[in-house]
Design a protein around this nucleic acid. Structure first.
Lengths: 218, 218
DNA sequence: TAGATTGTTAATCGATTAACAATC
DNA sequence: TAGATTGTTAATCGATTAACAATC
C-alpha cells in the first residue's frame, strides 16, 4: 500500500508531481471533493493518461466515474515528494539571486525552509533578511551540526562554488541545490541538483528561431 | 553543410549545448586550439559518445586523433542555439526575482539582452536598474513595436501572469520566458518556456530521501 | 606504425501513447 | 442501464548506449 522503497518513481513523473499538487491544493481550498485526471490534465496541459499513470505511483487509487479524492491525493503527492515534513536548508551567497531566493515565500509549499543564510561579505553578515539571519561562512560547520541541517543551496559566483560545496560536504550536508553554472565534484553519497537557466533559454531560443523559419516558405 | 532547417536537433541535445559552449569558450580564452569530446565529457560529466553525437548536430566535423577546432566549434554552437545575434527582451515584473534577473550580467553570453523593464508599481517605474529603465506596463505595446522586441520575460505573481501574457501577445511578442508557476494560454505560434524551480526541488527532495532510505539496511 | 580519436550503425532502454478491459 | 472514468497491457517512439569501422 505505502510506497516507501517500493518501486522507484520515474524522474519525469517526479517533475510533474509539483504541478499536480499545486492544482489539487487549489481545488481543495475551493471546497471540491473529487477531481478527475481529465480535469487535471486540461488544467496543466498534459494528456489525461499521463496524469493517470503518474498518479498510480502515488499509491492512491481512483474511483471510476468520480476520479480521485482530493483529501487523499494531496497528502499522497506530498509524501511521494518527501515534502510532508519541511526540510531545513542553508543558503550560501546573498547576492541578487540569493536575495531573491530568501524573499521568495513559496518554498514552504515545496517542503523546504531556509533557516539561515551565509556570505563572506562583512557588510551584510550580522544582519538579517526575510526572517533569516546572515552569518559569516565560517560559522556554517558548527551551525549545520547544531541545527542538524542536511540541505544546502549554493547561490555564489561560479569561481567559489566548488569551495563552498567542499565546506557544505565537510559540514555533513547530504543534498545540494546548485545555482552556479559549474559541475560540482562531491562524494557519491551527496545528491546534487543543478539549476541552470541557460538550459531553458537554450530551448526557448531554438524553438523561437525554428518557429520563425518554418513560417518562411521556400 | 549548414544546418538551418536541415534536421531538427533533439531538445536534450539543445539543453546540453550551453554547457559545451561554456567549456569551449573557457578553453578558447585559455589559448587552446583543439578539444576532444573525451575532454569535454570529463569536464561536464557526460560520456564522450553523447558529446560526439551532440556535436554532430552542430555541423562541425572533428579531426581524428586531434578532436575539434575551438575556433570552429564555439561559433557553430552559438549559431545552432540562435545565440549568434543577441535577442532583445522585455522584462515584466521588477520584484525580487525580476531584480535578480536584471542584475544578472550573464545573459549576454546566452544571446539575450534585457532592453527594458516594466512594472505596475508607480514607486519604481520611471527609475532604472542595472542599466535598464523601468516603465509602466501601459507603455509596453508602443515600445515593443518601436524597438521591435520579440521576446518577453514574465516575472510577476501568479495571479497576473496570464494578463501579462495577453499584453505581450497583443504587442507582437513571439516568445515568452515564464517564471510564474502557471500554464499560460497563448496562440500556438507563440513559444512559451516555463521555468519552474519546483521541478528541480522535487527531484532533489526525492533523491535525497531515496538516498537516505537505501542506506538503511533491512 | 600504433593508437587515440571521430563517426556511424545496431541494440537497448525507458517513457509516452494507443487500445481496451474493468468499474461503478 | 449508459457512459464517464480508472487502470493495465501492448505498441510506438526517441534517446542513450554499445560495438565497431574509419581516419590520421
Amino acid at each position: 500500500m505505502n510506497n516507501d522503497a517500493m518501486q522507484p518513481i520515474p524522474l519525469p513523473t517526479i517533475r510533474r508531481f509539483p504541478e499536480y499538487l499545486r492544482f489539487v491544493e487549489d481545488k481543495r481550498l475551493a471546497g471540491e471533493e473529487w477531481i478527475s485526471t481529465t480535469e487535471i490534465g486540461a488544467a496543466i496541459g498534459r494528456k489525461s493518461v499521463v496524469v493517470r499513470k503518474d498518479l498510480s505511483y502515488s499509491g492512491v487509487a481512483g474511483h471510476p466515474r468520480r476520479g480521485f479524492r482530493l483529501e487523499e491525493l494531496a497528502p499522497a503527492l506530498r509524501r511521494s515528494l518527501g515534502w510532508d515534513n519541511a526540510t531545513d536548508a542553508f543558503l550560501v551567497g546573498v547576492g541578487s539571486l540569493g536575495q531573491a531566493l530568501l524573499g521568495y515565500g513559496g518554498f514552504a509549499n515545496y517542503g523546504m525552509r531556509i533557516v539561515a543564510a551565509f556570505d563572506c561579505n562583512d557588510d551584510i553578515t550580522g544582519g538579517s533578511m526575510a526572517q533569516s539571519q546572515i552569518f559569516p561562512i565560517q560559522k556554517l560547520p558548527q551551525l549545520a551540526k547544531r541545527m542538524n541541517v542536511k540541505l544546502g543551496i549554493i547561490a555564489v559566483p561560479q569561481d567559489v562554488a566548488q569551495s563552498v560545496a567542499n565546506i557544505l560536504v565537510d559540514a555533513g550536508i547530504r543534498g545540494i541545490w546548485n545555482f552556479a553554472p559549474v559541475q560540482l565534484d562531491v562524494p557519491s553519497n551527496v545528491v546534487v541538483r543543478r539549476e541552470d537557466l541557460s538550459h531553458g533559454l537554450a530551448v526557448l531560443s531554438y524553438q523561437l528561431r525554428e518557429e520563425c523559419e518554418t513560417i518562411r516558405p521556400e
